[in-house]
Design a protein around this nucleic acid. Sequence first.
DNA 1: CTGAAAGCGCTTACAG
DNA 2: CTGAAAGCGCTTACAG
Lengths: 342, 342
Amino acid sequence: MSRPRITLKDLAKELQLSPSTISRAIAGHPAISESTKKKVRKKAEELGFVPNSIAAGFRKKRTHSIGVIVPQIDVHFHSLVISGIEDLAYREGYNITIFQSKDSIEREKEIAKILQNRLVEGIIVCLSNETKSYTHFKKLVKLGIPIIFYDRVPLDFQANKVVIDDFGSAFKATEHLIEQGCQRIGHIAGNQGASIFKHRFEGYKAALQAHDIPYDPNLVLETQNLSYEEGASCAHKFIALPQIPDGIFCSNDYTAISAVQVFQKAGFKVPEQIAVVGFSNYPISQVIQPNLTTVNDRAYQMGEAAAKLLIRQIEDEDNAIDFETITLKTDLVIRESSLRKK
Amino acid sequence: MSRPRITLKDLAKELQLSPSTISRAIAGHPAISESTKKKVRKKAEELGFVPNSIAAGFRKKRTHSIGVIVPQIDVHFHSLVISGIEDLAYREGYNITIFQSKDSIEREKEIAKILQNRLVEGIIVCLSNETKSYTHFKKLVKLGIPIIFYDRVPLDFQANKVVIDDFGSAFKATEHLIEQGCQRIGHIAGNQGASIFKHRFEGYKAALQAHDIPYDPNLVLETQNLSYEEGASCAHKFIALPQIPDGIFCSNDYTAISAVQVFQKAGFKVPEQIAVVGFSNYPISQVIQPNLTTVNDRAYQMGEAAAKLLIRQIEDEDNAIDFETITLKTDLVIRESSLRKK
DNA sequence: CTGAAAGCGCTTACAG
DNA sequence: CTGAAAGCGCTTACAG
């Protein structure tokens, strides 16, 4: 398909100048006279010269490429994060190369291996949910490639991380239910093996305590994946309790929405009889009836922050920066599903 | 950050062999003896040698990189397409570099300019909705870079395209409403400047005609962006008609969902009084009540098909392939919102 | 089976 | 202000 491309050398021959001069003229080097620059640019335009940035990058040992590893691109949270990464990277002159681990530790390891090859100057990762050890990433760090983790971050591993304040978000969400008059608040929890869900659970408990509401373990249901189906089954369990909760804090929007639907079908009014709060502010939360109160987890900003931090590390020549953890604030988006007082 | 990396030369010196031999041994060249290969691999492992694939790619004039330009990553349709592209590319040993045009023709042009630089071997594009002329892509084609368009594809421009059968999908969807007993079927249409929405409109009309139902222009409402808000306002207009439609075919799921909600709030039963069909099979369509009947537009398969076609073109050495258009089949996912007969 | 040499397309320290 | 030369880390046609 590709026909021979015009190179610096071709331009040089054509203009009776040295390749060095052409290179400098194209790059806008101050030592080159304006008249030469003009001549070179005109000829370059005429011949359709486009610098081969692979060659330049190879020479300068730069690719201006950032690797991104996500479990699954079409999960809305991740696509929003990627959008934030891309926007910031684009502004800063970097491009992003994306890989999906498909939540498989094997594939994540393969990808990590590929990325040893100098294709990217740094990496942004959300761990697969199978990942328990981080040796494949340690190898990359050892090779001098900076890595930023976001959302699902490694625990026992010194690294750069961007996370949200899960504890504080859960605290605020639960407190909001209390302020709406709820006294018996349930919690649909994510897998407690993951720190983010543990922190949310703890924020929930702390809010109860802060308001002198006794903690009742029967009101907390742990799920595997916070799936739509699990949300429904949790809701059925809540209904089957001797005394039904009057408020539910859910660790994501899917479970919150399916719980709302189960409650409604069973004849309970949301929010009047049971108020519900979700987590993540998925687009769907503003579409279902009633609109769902939820925590805006700032996925886009998380992507921006991760990219900004990574680029800073890449360009930090004297390697002065140690590891850094950025915690992003969230806000509670109050909608109809929890609003009893107007 | 980066410490000096081990190169072929280092390995060669260490093992008293020539760089050529090392290169061949690592690549598994058949001419090299097994014993040498074993020695080289052992030493490579020991010193942590990782081939610099940028250097190799530069030398071989290959990057194994595919560029993808989408309007917006966090639009579910596009993230699903990207997921399909990534999966296929990964299997074939390519990586994907992603850019967002943000539906801005300016940004799309900038990106096209960047991609002249030999970073990628081919490009997959969904046009920005501002794009009317294709000179920026023609330049890339002239440079020998293969391009595949998907979904929003250029009309008056010879190119490789992957699309779905919009006409046939709309026909099937409308016919389904007729089979459910609808006799007065409305249509919420997308911007008729876009071919995909025009084809859907035409499929709708053709189905009516095929079943001897007169076409009534009052039952067709054109929108700008098929937004949730526009869907609601269309629904209000339908309600205000002297005679309300008993079925609606919508060009996407957002408008379908908001229409359903407006109808329900106004006291109409869906599907009993008004049956509704959407388009795209967004995740939300299986969550809202009633579940939405919709056209599965095979976004993931579209990504796979585009990547497959592109890689074929990249690897088609003698440039034997002319332009190609792939039309994917869709299927109608029948759910509660249109199902009157059980 | 192994090696010496050339070269991919740039950039840049050095020299003038 | 411009040029000659070296080199980034590989691969490969050619030679033996």
